[in-house]
Design a protein around this nucleic acid. Structure first.
Lengths: 346, 346
DNA sequence: ATGAAAGCGCTAACAA
DNA sequence: TTGTTAGCGCTTTCAT
């Protein structure tokens, strides 16, 4: 390859020369050091403005050994929940003059390994890991390099690693009580892929919610999905084939619920007339569909800010396990839920 | 602030020392220079593997003056089209070992200015600008620093700036002919915000499509939207208030169409029984709603790759106007379109 | 085929 | 209060 060198923009030395000071002084002015005379500072600032000079953060990063970048590893950009989270995460980072390095795993272990490697390569200062399906070995390198990690929905913290726990328990409890008040007794659940920790957490939360409402748990009314439309669709079809149909269904997330509604539409089962449906997450699309989806909403803004807070705490205390922060959620009532129909077989 | 310095990881000197060579040789090995004995190279590689050494790209970037990062400026991460594009863009960049720096403008001029500044600050090697609503002044700094730019839907190229043109003309033509064959004669159009160049392009394409199908253009059947649900919803309500209702509607994008369908649902107008609806973009959600949306789809993968191709061409030829690349689109038939109903007032 | 050394732009001791 | 200098990790002449 020939010269890959790009025409250099101005640097501190240029500014220094033009202002008749040293580059150290320029640096001080830029960083607001009180050690500079206002008169000198003013002169430097004028030159900076004239040149449209912007300091090169690459050099600063190299110097400091930190990149001012946080990694975000997500499974899937096509589930709107993640872009909506990214939006808030990004927003919070821009505030503190950081960047986000995004990696998607597409739920593949090898992609996760690649993503982790990218994080190491780019020297991120911390990682938020929303890809639930990892075995610990693939993120081992992050620990080795002592990079602060925040997981989501693992409910487990270790040294150098905090966790953000979405309060499914509280969310499903609200939903089940609400359904019970509407007369529902047979409530189904469409969960996430088997084998994922977060799927287990959600299912357990559902069971706890039933118990809390003094409703019996019926394993025949539980299906697994895949956090996407297809899974919810298939699971609902299977539920409809049940001899004793449920009158309401809770789901692991909104896409699952939307898939379920698609299946109901195809099977000409009116929602909420014959079946009430409740999602989880509160993605914006839940307002777009007909009927609008009742859902358990979790604030992405709160989540994003909690991630940053947790990262800070891990950094501040590397020797102890990271914090475990619980995130509230709220039942949002829309049109996909209604009174239980008169039960036919009784 | 105390020591911001982070415990350094290994560097080339460490590797060099352990392998008994100079850091120059390590660099050569890593970059596959043919000037190194296989024996030496092997020794170096072994040490690299043992240490899990990963070269610091920050240093390389500093040295070369390029960051291996491309900027992507989009208006809105909540329109699924953009994350779906981002996914493909990211994927293409990872292939060539680059990163994407994402900025969202939320359709605000001041946010655009901020975003542009971030691009400059982070020394991106090029920018893809999908935020249509800019006045040229806000991106002036990019030109000044001679950063390659690719716009989308401006249909205009200048020195240092290429454009990706989605072929609305062809897309709307397909859609209008299809509707005409179904017996539709009164076809409405819900466009984008007024004042945006891309909105004008879309409206013109719609008119051209009518003309091409020998159908008259009726200004009373045109509304503006905002590329989001709310705009499509409101516009459709307004269309329904028309004395002579259209039997089909084309829209500027899928969210607009989905908003329109929401309004139709609320007004108890059956789709496609009384009204056929066609979207644009082909976002995944169009498969999730009921009835599934007929839409004009454009491949994000092709778009993403075209952006990179265009960036390369701009870089290769800074003195000439950048390329203008046209992107095909395809009509995807689903359930939101059907034969025109018997017209009542005739 | 390999090494020594300079330099990318910035910052922080240390000196003055 | 300001300047000098060394060095962050890497690449690349220029020597050897």
């Amino acid at each position: 390859m020939a010269s890959l060198k790009v025409p250099a923009t101005h640097n501190m030395r240029t500014v220094a020369r033009l202002a008749g000071v040293s580059s150290a002084t320029v640096s001080r002015v830029i960083n607001g050091s009180p050690l500079v005379t206002e008169k000198t500072a003013e002169r430097v600032r004028r030159v900076i403005a004239e040149l449209n000079f912007i300091p090169n953060p690459l050099a600063t990063s190299l110097k400091y050994g930190r990149s001012n970048t946080y990694g975000l590893i997500i499974p899937d950009l096509t589930n709107p929940f993640y872009p909506e989270f990214l939006l808030e995460f990004e927003r919070a980072l821009v505030e503190i003059d950081h960047e986000v390095l995004l990696a998607t795993t597409e739920s593949s272990p090898s992609q996760l390994t690649r993503s982790v490697r990218r994080m190491l390569t780019r020297r991120v200062d911390g990682v938020v890991l929303m890809a639930s399906e990892f075995d610990t070995r693939s993120i081992e390198p992050l620990f080795e390099r002592r990079i602060p990690i925040i997981t989501v929905d693992r409910r487990r913290t270790v040294r150098g690693c905090g966790d953000i726990a979405i309060d499914f328990e509280s969310g499903y409890k609200q939903a089940v009580l609400y359904l019970k008040n509407l007369g529902h007794r047979n409530i189904a659940f469409i969960g996430g892929n088997e084998g994922l920790r977060t799927s287990q957490v959600r299912l357990n939360a559902f069971r706890a919610a039933l118990k809390h409402a003094s409703l019996p748990f019926n394993p025949n009314l539980v299906r697994v999905g895949d956090y996407r439309l297809a899974g919810g669709d298939a699971a609902m079809q299977s539920l409809l084939a049940q001899p004793r149909r449920p009158t309401a269904v809770l789901t692991a997330n909104d896409l699952t619920a939307m898939g379920a509604m698609r299946a109901l539409y195809a099977a000409h089962v009116p929602v909420p007339g014959q079946m009430s449906v409740i999602g989880f997450d509160g993605i914006m699309m839940t307002e777009a569909i007909q009927p609008a989806l009742t859902t358990i909403s979790v604030s992405r803004q709160v989540m994003a800010q909690s991630c940053l807070k947790a990262l800070d705490r891990v950094k501040a205390n590397r020797s102890k396990p990271g914090p475990l922060i619980r995130i509230d959620c709220a039942l949002v009532l829309r049109q996909s839920t209604g009174p239980s129909p008169k039960r036919r077989n009784e």
